[in-house]
Simulated assay, not measured.
Amino acid sequence: MSRTRRISGTLPSKIEGRHLDRQAVVYVRQSTLQQVAHNKESTAVQYALVERACTLGWARLRVAVIDDDLGCSAASAAGRPGFQRLVAEVGLGHVGLILGFEVSRLARSCRDWYHLLEICALAGTLIGDNDGVYDPGLYNDRLLLGLKGTMSEAELHIMRARFEEGRWNKAERGDFGFPMPRGFIRRPSGEIVQDPDERARDSLHLVFEIFERRRSIHGVVRYFHAHSLQLPDRVRGGPAKGDLVWAP
């Protein structure tokens, strides 16, 4: 009888009452602050998973969002307080379902990914992504989740290799740019020159003069603080890009 049910595909849903009695957690992550600022559609799609959790049977009040890791890479669990909190909540038996847009949102490290799978299997927690809902305690689901995690880690390696190759190609052409240190600007022609603002040049020359006299960075800082002096810098992005600003 059980064999017939498996073949016909009429097994009940993986989501059971014990899962619905616990929280559904939507995990939201973007790799960099630049993505958070400019790739807002991706972030919005991840937040929309709250509605999917409700569709799957969770009451809205039992759906939590963990978005502490916006601007954090998934290459490691270190430095990701949101992911660490998620793992802790799963281990305490508070989570019935983890929802992420895709595996790469949760982890791009097989070590972190398999650690999460193991805890989910022990706690009876489901994992859902844009393809479906999986039970890490079931062999076939765990096999598929493991494959997704391996592909996610490999994807990170490929992206890094492409990025590094692109940097080397730009460097070989002489087109590799980098932010100018204080006191220098890059002209549209690519030529690097001292800041045209006379006050900016004088203040930076003063830094080196004080250093020659006091022979320590702390001595320079104390001098500038005692005389309420500020240092110049150029805005590096946004509508005011290139403007000269002064700060302690």
Rank of each mutant, 00 (worst) to 15 (best):
V221N: 02
L97T: 08
P232R: 08
I217T: 09
R182M: 10
F176V: 03
R3F: 09
W246N: 11
R62I: 01
W168N: 05
R111E: 14
S228N: 14
A77D: 12
F184P: 00
D233S: 15
E212K: 10
H115F: 01
S2E: 13
V220S: 06
P239N: 04
T150H: 05
V25Y: 02
R222D: 13
V87R: 15
T55F: 00
L126R: 05
L244T: 07
V63F: 04
A240Q: 14
I66N: 06
R187W: 00
G137M: 09
L145E: 06
S109I: 02
E212M: 06
D233E: 09
R162N: 12
V50G: 06
R187T: 08
A74C: 01
V95S: 08
G238E: 03
L33G: 11
D112A: 11
L138P: 00
G174D: 02
R18A: 09
A123P: 09
R18S: 12
V220R: 03
R108C: 12
I210S: 01
T32C: 03
I98H: 10
P136A: 10
I192G: 07
V28T: 05
R186V: 01
L126K: 05
I7V: 14
R85F: 00
N140V: 06
R162V: 10
H94D: 00
L231F: 13
V193N: 04
N130L: 12
S42P: 02
G79P: 07
M159A: 08
D175M: 13
T10P: 00
V193F: 03
W58C: 04
H225M: 08
E191V: 12
P188N: 08
E16D: 03
F184W: 14
V235Y: 00
F83L: 13
G137R: 04
A200F: 11
S73R: 04
A77K: 12
S31L: 02
T55Y: 00
R186Y: 00
Q35M: 09
R111G: 08
E153N: 08
G57V: 03
V36E: 09
F178L: 12
H115T: 15
H227P: 01
H218T: 04
L70S: 03
F101C: 05
C120Q: 07
F176T: 02
A74I: 01
L116I: 15
